[in-house]
Design a protein around this nucleic acid. Structure first.
Lengths: 132, 132
DNA sequence: TTTTATGCAAAGTCTTTGCACTCAC
DNA sequence: GTGAGTGCAAAGACTTTGCATAAAA
C-alpha cells in the first residue's frame, strides 16, 4: 500500500484517511494528522497525498473550492450541496443512478469518470416546505 | 441576459465568452477581454463571471486546476486529458454515454449533474501505439 | 442625483518549491 | 553511509475584498 520508505508521517496520514469517512481537504487532513504528529508540516501532507493519489490509494475529488480527498476507492459518485457545500457519497448503483460509457470517446482513451451531482440537501432546501 | 446596469465591461466579457468555444479560465478570459478593453481589471472579470454563473448564463466547470467557464449551457459532459490537461466537450448524447438520475437522491434535491471523464487524448496516449 | 459597477491594490486561501537536515534502509 | 523523505519558510497561483472613483439610470 505505501510506496517507498515507511515513515511515521506516511502512517499517520494513512491512519487519518482510514478513519475519516467524509471528504477532507488537504488542510483538514493536516489538522487531523497534527493531533498525533504535532510537528508534521503541511508540505509533507501535500506531498504524501499526491503520492497516494498517483498510487491509486485515494481519489482526488474535483469540484469543490479546494481539492478534497476520498479514501473510498470503490466506484461511487458525489453530491455537492450548493447551500452548505457538504460533499457526500452517492452509491454507484442503487440510488437510481445509471451511468454507462465506452472505453474511448472521440479517439480518447477513457480511464475514469467522475459524476458530481449538485443541488440542495434536506437542510438547505430553498423556499420549499421541509416536508419535501 | 445581462443583469443590472449595462456596462462596456459586461458587454466585452459576454462577447469574449460568445466567441471562445473552448473552456477558458478566468485569467484567460481577462487576457482576451483586455484586447478590446485594455484597462479592465481582473477583479471586474471575476465579479462578472460570478454574476453570469449565478444567472445561469454560463457554467462553471469543476475539476480543472483553476475554475474554468463554459458559455455552452446545453447539456453536455467534459473530458479532461491527464496528459495535456485539455478540457473538451462530450455531447450529452451520441458519444455512447448514457446517464440517468432521479430528481432527488437520499432526500437531496438534485438540480444538476456534471460528468467529467478522465483519460488520455490521442496525442497523450501513454505507452500505446498511435494506431490505438 | 443616486446608486451600481469599476479599477486598483492589498490581502486571503490553497498549493508548490528549495534547501538543509533527519532517519529508514 | 546513502538517499528518500521531512520541516521550514518562502514563493507562486488563483481568487476575493475594501474603498475611492466613474458612469449608468
Amino acid at each position: 500500500m505505501l510506496q517507498g520508505r515507511c515513515t511515521t508521517q506516511k502512517l499517520a496520514i494513512a491512519a487519518v484517511l482510514r478513519d475519516i469517512h467524509d471528504h477532507p481537504s488537504a488542510l483538514l487532513i493536516h489538522e487531523r494528522v497534527r493531533e498525533s504528529l504535532p510537528n508534521i508540516s503541511l508540505a509533507t501532507v501535500y506531498r504524501n497525498l499526491e503520492n497516494m493519489v498517483a498510487a491509486g490509494f485515494i481519489n482526488a475529488i474535483a469540484g469543490a473550492p479546494e481539492c478534497r480527498f476520498d479514501a473510498n476507492t470503490m466506484p461511487h459518485h458525489h453530491f455537492l450541496c450548493q447551500g452548505c457545500h457538504t460533499l457526500s457519497d452517492v452509491p454507484a448503483t442503487g440510488a437510481g443512478v445509471s451511468l454507462l460509457y465506452p472505453d474511448s470517446i472521440d479517439g480518447c482513451a477513457v480511464t475514469g469518470a467522475q459524476l458530481l451531482f449538485s443541488g440542495y440537501c434536506q437542510a438547505c432546501m430553498p423556499g420549499r416546505p421541509s416536508a419535501f
